[in-house]
Amino acid sequence: MTLAPPALRVAGLRKAYDDVVAVDGLDLTVNAGECFGLLGPNGAGKTTTIEICEGLTAPDSGTVEVLGMTWASDERALRERLGIQLQETQLAEKLTVGETVQLFRSFYTTGRDVQEVIDVVQLGEKVHARVGKLSGGQKQRLALACAIVGDPELLFLDEPTTGLDPQSRRQLWDLIVELRASGRSIVLTTHYMDEAERLCDRVAIVDHGRVIALGSPRELIASLGAEHVVEFTTGAGGHALDRDELRALDGVKAAREQDGRWTLEVVELARAMPALLGELGRRGLRLGELATHSATLEDVFVSLTGRQLRDA
C-alpha cells in the first residue's frame, strides 16, 4: 500500500492587499483523514488562507498542493474532489432546499444521493421550503449539504458554525465528526476554542497571517505548563500587587493584569489558591471576584499574544 499524499501542503504562503498583509509566510500540512483547525481572531488571515487553498484566490507567493495536485495543472480534477463551504454565501433564495442540493449535485460526475444528503443535514422536512425562508442554522446546514453532495475527499469549511445557537452548533459538530469518521479530510476555520478542541485532531493558531502555534489541542494546552487558570479582582489597592511576586507564588506559572483583572496560569490549584489568599492577606487586600477554569486553547492564545482571541 502506498502512503496517501497529505491532503494539503502549503509552504511560504504570502498574500498582501492594498493596505494589509493578510497572509505572511504561512506553512501547513494537513494529513489525509485528519480534521485540521485554523484558529485565530478576526482578520488573522484564515479566510484568505483557505480561499487560496481552494484555488479561489491567487497567492502573491508560496506553493499550495492539494491531494498531491496543484491548481495550475489539475484544477478540473481537484474541483471534483473538494467540498467547499465559504464563510459567506447566500444561496439563491427563490429555490427550494431540494432544488439547491440537486443543482450542486449536477456539477459533479460522481456524488451522493440528493435526498440522502438532505437527510444527513436534517433538512428532510424542509426539502420543499424556499431557501429564503430558512433560519440561519438551517442555511448553514444547507451550505454543508452543498459542500458534501459531491462526496468530497477533502472538505474546506470556513466558520461552519458561526452565528448558530448552541443546539445547532452541536448538531453540526456531530455531522463533522461523522464525516471525519468516514475518512474524509477536513480543514475548518473557527474562532471558537471549544469547537477546535472538540473537532480537530490538530490546530494551527493563526495571528497576523502566520502560524504561531501548531499541534493537537491537548499538546497546545499542555505547552502552557499550567492546567488551570485563575482570574480574580481585588478591592481597592489591587494595583499594589506585583506581577513578579505573584508569579513567584507556589504553583503559579504566569501572571497578567488587564483593566484591574488578574489572570494566573496555575499548575496545581490546591497549592496556588492558599498561596494567593496568603499573599492578599499579607497586603491587607480583599478578594473581589474569583473564577477558575481548566486551561483552554483560548488561554494558549492569550499566553502567546497577550490578547484575548475574541477581541484581539
Binding site: 465559504l86 456539477f107 459531491g150
Partner: peptide, 16 residues
C-alpha cells in the same frame, strides 16, 4: 446579484 451574494464564487468552486 449572484456575485454580490458570493454565489458566483461558490459556483466556480465546484466543477461547474
Amino acid at each position: 446579484e449572484a456575485r454580490r451574494r458570493n454565489l458566483l464564487k461558490r459556483l466556480v468552486s465546484t466543477p461547474m
